[in-house]
Design a protein around this nucleic acid. Structure first.
Length: 552
RNA sequence: GGGCCCGUGGCCUAGUAUGGAUAAGGCACCGUCCUUCUAAGUCGGUGAUCGUGGGUUCGAAUCCCACCGGGCCCGCCA
């Protein structure tokens, strides 16, 4: 949980002790600028047959000892509260000076599994799939920040029809080529075309699946080798984006170690048979667990995987494409209702990314890979940083361009609500101004520059905050609430959008409030604001995959 | 046919879970500001019946119903 002086809660509790009918939702921040927090007294007024002025004066008397409130006024059916900037600043500073982060957390021992990416090892990761990794990694970072012990998980589908058909394709058409992701992709796409021309080839795939599940050594070795090559290059792409996977679980291992069989045994009473194929059903829907030749299906392997996760984690989170919604529902049904596991299980869905020319398919070959996007983003950033900072040595230019590019790519994808469809456009993806990562990074660099130039001047965290400083302090204070909502709602985009607001507020401060040239009192107080701002931006930026730079 | 998601200025989005005050940004376009801490920035302007129609409510972008448009799913694929 987050540790900070929660004035919203404090005010709400106080108001509830005066008027027990007040609900938590009746006290909320105001978006229109009338107040920092407002009590919506509409129901109170109707029920109690009192005037808003009476409500306000009763509250004013009761809260007269509370120094975190500057003013209490009324407007329509609202009681408006202006909070004391100094107290908010103190709440931020005491944590930053104590633990170097606002808000601090109390370490919660719960273990969380975040499964993301888990893309079939049949080719390079494309920009549709990378949305999964980017959302997943941000959720990993946010929950870790929140205090959970989080592990990232990748479920390697090395037993499915698609991977096995890649294997068969490689044996038939790619044997003489070196074992690289490019050659494997070519073999996979060729296999796809050949099967379309001659569906009888499917029989070879069936046979290979049987051999694989039976544990035939050379098949196993070959498939492991092929998958490892592709996984290796997927991993390189993820690394470029700063994304790390902790655990890889191979589907074939769950088959060979007997976990899948155990699932079938546990479900024995529920299993039904159709020509040798086993299934469970719910509401007239059949969910098949095995084929009629006894080989397993993705569904049963995924149940085994979730059973494993239930054994090892307190909270399971899967990041899945929207086409897996029904599958996820079935997993939940079997895990919860049939296997009676009561652990916390959440799914985060995202809609697919399409190109202006239509949807992407690895087999069809019409994809933009994440590597291509990164390469072009780096090229673009390099061009810009070269014109802005011609005096810098090449190594610095490259370092800045890399940070800008990876941050921009991640931010462009993570800032969008995950269930919104996304049509990929180069111009938007490569845009480095406006609502983008560089916009945030730039403000951070400005703050860093001020602090650098300030040298060892005293920093003073209290004082009288002017109307130019207050909005920034208040916006910084909000961070704790945003972090809570993002973690609790599994919504990294909330952090992304908050960062944009925070940065805009800082830019306003920056243009209107001289820091280094201000008189000594203003200067030391403003330096404290800048220091806190820099600290919070760095903290929040990391959560959405932005690598801030001290200079750019 | 059934189920789920999306629809907010010309374009891209925030706000929707938990209804609340003049709907908040970006891109593009027009104009402004570098002898003040980094102009990847700032300020101002043009531009929105929040898909449509009903309903609930003191109050609806937000909740309910219907419809329209787009996406996804309804395999012994994954």
């Amino acid at each position: 949980m987050l540790l900070f002086e929660d004035y919203r809660k404090r005010l709400t509790e106080s108001l509830k002790s005066i008027y027990p009918d007040i609900k938590d939702n009746d006290v909320a921040p105001d978006k229109t600028g009338h107040a920092d927090l407002a009590l919506r007294a509409f129901s109170l007024l109707r029920k109690g047959d009192v005037k808003i002025e009476d409500v306000a004066s009763r509250i004013t008397v009761a809260l007269s000892g509370e120094d975190y409130i500057d003013s209490i006024t009324t407007s329509g059916g609202y009681v408006n509260f202006i909070l004391n900037t100094g107290k908010l600043m103190e709440a931020i500073s005491s944590e930053i000076y104590g633990t170097d982060r606002y808000p601090d957390v109390f370490q919660d021992p719960e273990r969380v599994s975040v499964e993301h990416t888990s893309t079939n090892p049949t080719g390079p990761i494309h920009i549709g799939r990378i949305r999964n990794s980017i959302i997943g990694d941000s959720i990993f970072r946010i929950l870790s920040r929140y205090g959970y012990r989080v592990t990232t998980q990748y479920f390697v589908n090395d037993s499915g029809r698609q991977v096995v058909s890649l294997y068969v394709g490689y044996r038939k058409f790619g044997q003489n080529d070196s074992l690289t992701t490019e050659n494997l992709l070519k073999a996979y796409q060729r296999m796809h075309r050949e099967v379309e021309a001659d569906p009888s080839l499917e029989k070879e795939v069936d046979e290979a699946i049987r051999q694989y599940e039976a544990g035939k050594p050379e098949v196993m070795d070959d498939i492991r080798k092929i998958c490892s090559v592709i996984l290796g290059s997927i991993n390189e792409t993820l690394e470029r984006l700063g994304i790390r996977i902790d655990d890889y679980t191979w589907e074939s291992d769950l088959i060979r170690n007997g976990d899948v069989d155990k699932i079938l045994e546990s479900l024995e009473d529920e299993l039904e048979d159709e020509g040798g194929a086993k299934y469970v059903s719910s509401g007239g829907r059949k969910m098949f667990l095995t084929r009629n030749d006894g080989t397993s299906l993705y569904f049963s392997r995924d149940i085994a995987y979730h059973q494993y996760k239930m054994d090892n984690f307190d909270w399971i989170i899967d990041i899945l494409g929207e086409n897996h919604k029904e599958h996820a529902g079935h997993i939940r049904y079997v895990i919860k209702d049939l296997l009676h596991r009561d652990g916390r299980l959440d799914f985060v869905f995202y809609s697919y990314v399409s190109l202006e020319s239509g949807k992407m398919t690895t087999r069809g070959g019409n994809i933009v890979t994440a590597d291509e996007l990164l390469d072009r983003a780096i090229e673009e950033s390099l061009k810009i940083v070269r014109t802005k900072r011609p005096e810098l040595p090449e190594s610095d230019l490259m370092r800045i361009a890399l940070a800008v590019a990876t941050s921009a790519v991640r931010f462009h994808i993570v800032k969008l609500n995950s269930n919104k469809q996304m049509v990929f456009k180069w111009a938007e993806a490569l845009s480095l101004e406006g609502d983008s990562a560089p916009f945030i990074m730039y403000s951070y660099a400005r703050a860093a520059s001020i602090l650098r130039k300030a040298g060892s001047t005293e920093i003073k965290t209290e004082g009288n905050f002017s109307h130019l400083e207050s909005p920034l302090v208040k916006k910084m204070y909000e961070y704790a609430y945003v972090l809570h909502d993002a973690a609790f709602g599994l919504k990294p985009e909330a952090i992304a959008n908050y960062l944009l607001e925070l940065t805009r507020t800082f830019n306003d401060f920056y243009t209107n409030c001289p820091v280094l040239n201000a008189d000594i009192n203003d200067r030391s107080r403003r330096l404290a604001i800048v220091k806190n701002f820099k600290n919070i931006v760095k903290d929040a930026a990391y959560l959405v995959g932005i690598n801030v730079l001290e200079e750019m």
